[in-house]
Design a binder for these strands. Sequence first.
DNA 1: TCCACTAGGGTAAACGATAACTCAAATAGG
DNA 2: CCTATTTGAGTTATCGTTTACCCTAGTGGA
Lengths: 340, 340
Amino acid sequence: MVEIARRAGVSTTTVSKVLNQRPGVGEKTRARIQRLIEQSDYVQNHAARHLRKGRSGLIDLVLMRLEGGYDLGIMQGVQEVLEQSGYRLVVFATNEDETTERLWLRRILDQSSDGVLLLLPYERVGIADTLLEQGIPFVAIGDRNEPTTAFPTIGSTIWLGGYTATEYLLSLGHRRIGIITGPLHLTTSRARLAGYREALEQAGIAVDPALICEGSYLLGDGIRQTEALLDLPDPPTAIFAGNDAQAAGVYQALYRRHIRIPEEMSVIGFDDVTYSAHMAPPLTTIRQPLEEMGRMAAEMLLRLIAGQTLETHHVELATSLVIRESCGPPRQGPLGRGNS
Amino acid sequence: MVEIARRAGVSTTTVSKVLNQRPGVGEKTRARIQRLIEQSDYVQNHAARHLRKGRSGLIDLVLMRLEGGYDLGIMQGVQEVLEQSGYRLVVFATNEDETTERLWLRRILDQSSDGVLLLLPYERVGIADTLLEQGIPFVAIGDRNEPTTAFPTIGSTIWLGGYTATEYLLSLGHRRIGIITGPLHLTTSRARLAGYREALEQAGIAVDPALICEGSYLLGDGIRQTEALLDLPDPPTAIFAGNDAQAAGVYQALYRRHIRIPEEMSVIGFDDVTYSAHMAPPLTTIRQPLEEMGRMAAEMLLRLIAGQTLETHHVELATSLVIRESCGPPRQGPLGRGNS
DNA sequence: TCCACTAGGGTAAACGATAACTCAAATAGG
DNA sequence: CCTATTTGAGTTATCGTTTACCCTAGTGGA
């Protein structure tokens, strides 16, 4: 910059003014400097600006683990918005490890982050509280915990999703519907289950506790719990998998037992992650608009950073039923095991 | 920091020395300051350190698109290493858009990045050249282009992978093996094909050009090209899918036509991304050690940043055959279409 | 013609931390 | 007991930009 100022025969102040498009520079001087800047391969030093202006141009996305499902959809949405805004996206995985979380938190507090997107159950190590205290703008995505008004959150109509999924299966004629939930200490898991219950009740069907299995949103749970369901004396004719990862597990367990989808067993997922359309048969699922959620979250955060106030603190996007090919009418009679 | 210095009755210099664990401070003074630091909630200002020390603590990972397959595996490996090293990972997707790429490049050059991991065909907009020119350390992952000695690269034994995949199918008894390659302008795509050719030749089988289809590593290509292969007068008994995403496409096309895997058609993938074990049936594939590659790349980059020289400029990790359940002996006779 | 005002542009002080250098006191050796 | 050496700690310049403030020359009005 000094170099440019020298060549233009002006002070760095003037060059700075030109760079930041502020008034106080004559038309021809401005043009001259502008040209010089373009000719040279000068780039503003990030650190110096950061130091002086107090903005790092960085936004942190914290998540527990890079999994390629739910998280990826969100990331894509976030990426999209940030890319245009000039902010850069820092990704951090905590691995659910407290030490790592605290480490990250310390690093956030050094003012190297202009804002944070939380993709965590925010009970963890008081992250939310700390951020709040320190006045660092943040938005929590996917209400993994109790609703709150203390900070902005983005979610989707989970309860409705659970209801819709169950209702759809009912409409196909199913009466015994298994459900594999997520960890029941999470609000979102309970919301799905509540939707499921409500739909059954409205159809006048008693809820059979044996058909309710708890998983932890991992593929392995899908496998295990499906086996449990199949081993029931009166197994279900359809399984609501809680999320798409577990649905993949369901697929696998069914494949092992040579049970065809959807002829012998209907499967419905939740999330609509990228790969759910890739499964064979393509998975019918409840779509959470993940990218849209990521976009919204990023936009809200940017507004927060800009010092604007948000109209709404909690945004809830609509889930929707995506019908593909994993659901059909219930089978008649018992499961034909081993009819490969 | 000034505050701490004041409270300890020393100068900021001394505090700085304590913080950075440098000599020149008395034992008791050091202890006193240390305690004060711990009591206060002081965190070093990132920008100032960055400005003074010339290191931002940031590493950029550039890729074309967040897809959740190949890229994700690499990211996980990178994450793992960086987490421990104290560097933060910035993720940037170019979307294959030149403007976006240039934008990113400009931002890199402002010295806000200590190093770059390139997950791109590096022909693009002379990224490699620019980085080289500017003296920014970087490592290219996954040799999408010609080998080079100009900068460090990490790859895997692709040719061998192609060879092994084909050989495995041959060993099962297959004689007509379809292959869906990636874009043939990429070295890695050609390497797979070359391995395939070599294996066939060694088995004394003539290469049938009709069995070679070009895709672009996307799921859709898998579907399309599988259909093309199935519509051949003499369709193959096995398909080598080029990568796992295309394999998912193959699965889907076969599902549509009610062709069972592996009874009627064997399918083998390439990459061994996270979801390939989740497919039904679990996909037999050639494993690229993606996480390992990510880790290696990150480690090499860190060494480069630390100013150390690398022993080897090009690292090639071993691919391996992962046998799951999508391959079997060839079917006898023609494809039984529609035997649901 | 003189004064007040404005626009263009410069000066210098931050921003927060680090590091080269300096200085004073304490220690050890003769 | 005095000097040489070590050790602990402070001074000050610096990293590259921005910005509050100041100055000067030109303009317009009275």
